[in-house]
Computed example of a mutant assay.
Amino acid sequence: MTLALENIVKAFKKDVVLDGVSLSVDQGETLVLFGPSGAGKTVLLRLIAGVIEPDQGTITIQGRDMNGVEPEDRGIGMAFQNFALFPHMDATDNIAAPLTARNMSKSGITETVGKIARMLKIEHVLHHKPKELSNGQKQRTALARALAGEPDILLLDDPLRNVDAKLRFEMRLELPRLLKEQNATVIYVTQDYKEAMALGDRIAVMSASGIEQTGTPSDIYLAPANIEIARLFGDPVINLLDVTLTQGAGGVQFTLSGVPVTVDAGYAEMVGRACTVGIRPEAIRFVEEGTAGAIPLVIETETPLNEKTVTLGLTQNGREIMVSRPAGRPGPAQGMGFVTIDATHIHLFDRATGNRVAPTQAAKTQGAA
């Protein structure tokens, strides 16, 4: 079931929440809406569900204009942050509500409810009413109800927000499999970038200005549209350093601790202009003193984080650099250290606009010649 939004505008009094938002989602695709609180993610879901109507623009499902179509006639399943559970029903009956409405057999209902409850680890509270459930259990019950109905379109508004860290991690693995089995068209809202990367076939990054970038998780991480998106994706956060590119003997470069770092020749048009260079901590590697291109750092602190170790160092000019390496890989914990940078993973941003600058193909070709 395909879903398309075109030039959606929604305001509440004088507060314009969505201004000309357009996006489309294909059959069986999971699109994650990612962004800070107040970006309009939940409002967008409510518009698609038909709970509220857009001031301008069109919403189509399978090519059919949804203007005036009631929520119950849109073939949509929803799990919103406010749970919306039936207070007089226990968890089993809440989950089974869409199945009961379809007159599914009792044995079919029992099997379906049990399967989803086990996946969400709420089978032990199936006979509890909402007032007896924790917020996390209520949220999982609402999610289970949305999944049980196997709708054509599924709207999930941060459904794992109140879930503990262990279960949240497990659900990042289990939920994509279940969604693919159902072949539903899914729009999933989250403020957790790891969740967005794990669950989304594509991610639409939203801000108060609208949709900033749409792409696959790899697109977003490897080619962020601007500095803000680069900051949002990654742990530890990307290193951002103000530099001015120069044309040296080795090509287009900038310097750190007096050591030239050569970047893609396609950045030649940015020579002499104020830029911000973005370097992912995992693109920096500790090396022995004397290694070609080694940049000296004064090691400030080292933090082991189970699967990786994060080191904070200072350049000769006092600029902070974060270095991430797999746990067990050697590196200095104090004193002086030396690093090299994988130039293929360097991002360049225009300092005036904050937008990412892509290297030009023409300059690359000339550089190769």
Rank of each mutant, 00 (worst) to 15 (best):
V21I: 15
A91K: 07
I238T: 02
A165F: 01
T30Y: 03
E269V: 00
E195V: 13
T301Y: 14
E300H: 15
L178A: 08
P176S: 09
E132W: 00
H347Y: 13
D157H: 07
D19A: 09
G335R: 13
V21G: 05
V357D: 04
V17N: 01
G278D: 05
L305A: 13
M66R: 10
Q247S: 15
V339H: 13
E288P: 07
D350P: 08
G266F: 12
V357Q: 09
V263I: 15
R273S: 04
T291G: 10
I8R: 01
R325C: 11
I48Q: 05
D164W: 02
A146I: 02
T309C: 11
D264I: 12
F86D: 13
E123N: 08
I48C: 06
V113H: 08
A358H: 09
G20R: 08
Q366N: 06
N67V: 09
L133C: 00
Q191A: 10
H127W: 00
L312A: 15
K364A: 11
D65F: 11
M270L: 12
H124D: 12
I229V: 14
D55C: 03
M104T: 07
V357L: 14
E307H: 15
V237H: 04
I295M: 06
I341T: 10
M1S: 04
A369T: 13
T110L: 13
L45F: 01
D342M: 09
R177P: 01
G38L: 04
D158W: 02
G293H: 06
A369S: 12
Y221A: 06
A101Y: 14
Y221H: 05
L155A: 03
D201E: 10
V25A: 02
L240S: 04
I299S: 09
A368K: 13
D90S: 07
M171W: 02
A223M: 01
A97S: 14
T344W: 03
T311P: 06
F34V: 11
E70S: 12
D65V: 10
L167F: 01
I95C: 09
A208Q: 12
I203N: 03
V189L: 05
G272L: 00
D201L: 10
E123L: 06
Q137D: 00
R285D: 07
E288F: 11
R140N: 00
A97L: 15
L31P: 03
V339R: 12
I95G: 05
A148L: 01
A196Q: 11
L156A: 02
V339A: 11
R285H: 14
L120N: 04
R325Y: 14
I153G: 00
I227M: 05
T291A: 15
I187Y: 03
